[in-house]
């Protein structure tokens, strides 16, 4: 077993798809709360209790949405009070809160997505669609620091030849433009040389393959299978409208029908996977350490 972030990026990517998308498909507060709970739990399991502090600003979304929605939407039967001749209703308030929580939970999940799916992993996912695109992406990524270094070199070369006055703003701007111009010319020529070098070494002769350090092990397949079964169960229940809330004029909940309960349970299990893997890995790490 390995921790969640060490699984095959494709499995992890699909996991995120299945955990984030269903929440967006239906405005169901129960589902959203499950999602938010496990999203925060995973961040805390991964980064310690300090993560909670970082996530706190996201609490703005539900608060704002809860205030703003009733100001614009006046549907609903339970009138709380009248503001400027417009009724503020409980239904609109609760709908706003739910929408805010959806946004909040998506942002929380994306915050762990951003730290887990590093550039190399996303490149791997891209590469499975098109090796050519993945190559372009990785070349562009390499060029970014290279151009930074090149700009420095050009600037130094120009300063040595005495091209700059220190106290002249216009001269500075013109100098900056000159450096950019030199840099772009160099970048394009350098690119062509790279391309010729690639051709000379036989790029494009055979079928394009790609290197990756990510394998498909039993645990990756297990993660994929669990994601597919649990995720599809949740998506199916949502697609059939088993979790649909009616918000206006009066809130009608789907209640605890068997389908709804199964869907909640499946989604909760899905959300718990990374927390479980993370905690298990940490426990093992600790137990191994103490034996040494």
């Amino acid at each position: 077993m390995k921790s969640f972030k060490d699984h095959n990026p494709i499995a992890v990517f699909i996991y995120y798809l299945f955990v984030i998308v269903p929440v967006m498909f239906c405005t169901n507060p129960v589902l959203v709360c499950i999602s938010l709970f496990f999203g925060i739990a995973f961040r805390m399991a991964k980064d310690g209790a300090g993560a909670l502090k970082k996530l706190l600003p996201f609490a703005v979304f539900p608060v704002i949405s809860m205030i703003v929605n009733p100001l614009f939407v006046h549907k609903g039967v339970t009138v709380l009070f009248i503001l400027n001749d417009n009724p503020v209703t409980l239904e609109a308030l609760r709908y706003g809160l739910t929408i805010g929580l959806i946004i909040c939970s998506t942002v929380v999940w994306f915050s762990s997505f951003n730290s887990i799916m590093t550039t190399d992993k996303l490149l791997y996912v891209f590469g499975s669609v098109s090796p050519k695109i993945a190559l372009i992406l990785s070349m562009a990524l390499r060029y970014i620091p290279l151009y930074g270094q090149q700009i420095k070199k050009i600037r130094q070369a120009q300063q040595v030849t005495g091209l700059y006055k220190e106290d002249n703003a216009i001269d500075k701007i013109r100098g900056g433009m000159r450096i950019m111009s030199v840099m772009v010319s160099w970048a394009l020529e350098n690119g062509i040389i790279t391309a010729d070098s690639m051709t000379a070494r036989g790029y494009g002769v055979g079928r394009r393959s790609r290197f990756s350090i990510f394998g498909w092990q039993k645990s990756d397949k297990a993660l994929m299978a669990a994601t597919a079964v649990l995720g599809l169960a949740a998506v199916l229940a949502i697609g059939l409208g088993k979790l649909a809330y009616v918000w206006y004029p009066q809130i009608v909940t789907p209640g605890a029908s068997p389908a709804a309960v199964v869907c909640y349970a499946a989604y909760a299990l899905l959300g718990a996977i990374p927390v479980y893997l993370q905690l298990k890995e940490e426990a093992r790490w600790r137990s191994l350490q103490s034996e040494i």
Binding site: P131, L135, Y143, Y147, A187, L188, G191, A195
Partner: peptide, 29 residues
């Protein structure tokens, strides 16, 4: 994805491909 897939099947010169990478890097910067 469809667009990328169709691009992958296309015969594109290596030079043009590298130029695309160069321009992408420049605009990211």
């Amino acid at each position: 994805l469809l667009f990328y897939a169709s691009f992958d099947k296309k015969v594109v010169g290596t030079r043009r491909m590298v130029i695309i990478a160069v321009m992408t890097a420049l605009s990211v910067i």
